[in-house]
Design a protein around this nucleic acid. Sequence first.
DNA 1: ATCCAGGGAACCC
DNA 2: GGGTTCCATGGA
Length: 313
Amino acid sequence: MRSNSITIIRGGTVQVEHTLFSGQSFVWNKSNHTPGIYSSVIDGSSVLIQQINPTSFSVTTGANNLYGIPLRRFFERYFSLDIATQMLFDEEFHTRFPELTARLLYLEGLRVLRQDPYETLVTFMCAQGIGMAMIRRQVSMLCRCFGRETKEGVNGIDTPLFSFPAPSDLAGADPELLRGCCNNNSVRAGNIREASRLVALGKLDLQALSDPSLPLSELQAELTALKGIGYKIADCIALFGMGRFDAFPIDTHVEQFLSAWFGIGSHQKGLSQKRYLHLQEKAVDLLGTSLSGYAGHHLFHCWRTTERNMKAF
DNA sequence: ATCCAGGGAACCC
DNA sequence: GGGTTCCATGGA
C-alpha cells in the first residue's frame, strides 16, 4: 500500500503525493491558458495548485498557516490523506465485481476533499438540474460580485482572485445582483440569500452540524428543512463540506451506475423521495456504512469518465 | 433542432 | 403515495 504524504518544499509550498486532483470542487478555478493549474482562495489567501505528474502536485500560498493551522497539517486534512483508496472497497466487493475493481484502479488517490461547509452549502445549491459548466460559472460570479479580492497574490496567478463570499455578504446581497449570479434563477437566489441569512444570524450552525457523532438522518433532516435543499444536495453538503464520508448522494449519474453495475433500481426517470432513500439504503448495504459516500464518489467518477466519456472537470 | 446537464418544489389527481 | 411541469441556459 502506498503511503500518503505531504512534503514541505519551501516556506509556502507543500507537495502532495499519491493524490489525483480531479477538480471535484466548484471553488477551484482551472487556469484558462496553463493546463494543470488550479487556483482558489482559502482563509483569505490565494492558493495555487500545480500538477507535477498525474498523481502528485504542489500547493503554494503566501500564508504560513490557514485557519491558524500549519500548512502541512491543514492540507493533510483538506486532502483527506487519512483515507487510503484501499479502504473503500472490501474483499467481498472485489470478488463480486472483479472487472469493476480493475477499472477503478486508475482512480487510486482520488480524494474527497474536506471543504468549508458554507461554501459547499451554497455551491451545491447552485447545482440543480444544470451542467457543471453552469454551476462553475455561478460560483465564479458569486465570488467576483460578493467576495473579497485577495491582497497578496501567488506567483503564476495573473488574474485577480476573489474569496468565496461570507454568509453576511450573501445575506445582505442585492436581490437583482444575486439573481444575475444564480443563472437568472430568482427562486435559487432567494433560497441562497435566506440560507446565508440563517448562517449569519447563527440560527443555522454548520459547525455544530459537522459534529461526526450526529446521526446522518438528523443531519439530513436539518439540511432538507431549508428551502432549495432536498436529499441529494443535503447529502452532497454532508459528504463534501462536513467530512461525512458515510453520506451517499444520488444524482442522475449515481442512479445510472447503481442500475447498470449493481442491479440496484431499474432505469427510471425521476427520483422520488421514497425511491431516493430506498436506493440509498441498497447502496450503503453494498458499500458499507462508514465510507459509502467516499466510495460512491470513486464510482461516480469512474462512470462519468469511462462509461459516459465525460471530462473529469 | 432537440436533449441533457451532479434537482427541487409547486401542483395535479 | 406517484406523475408532470416549471425554473433557466449553454453546450453537444
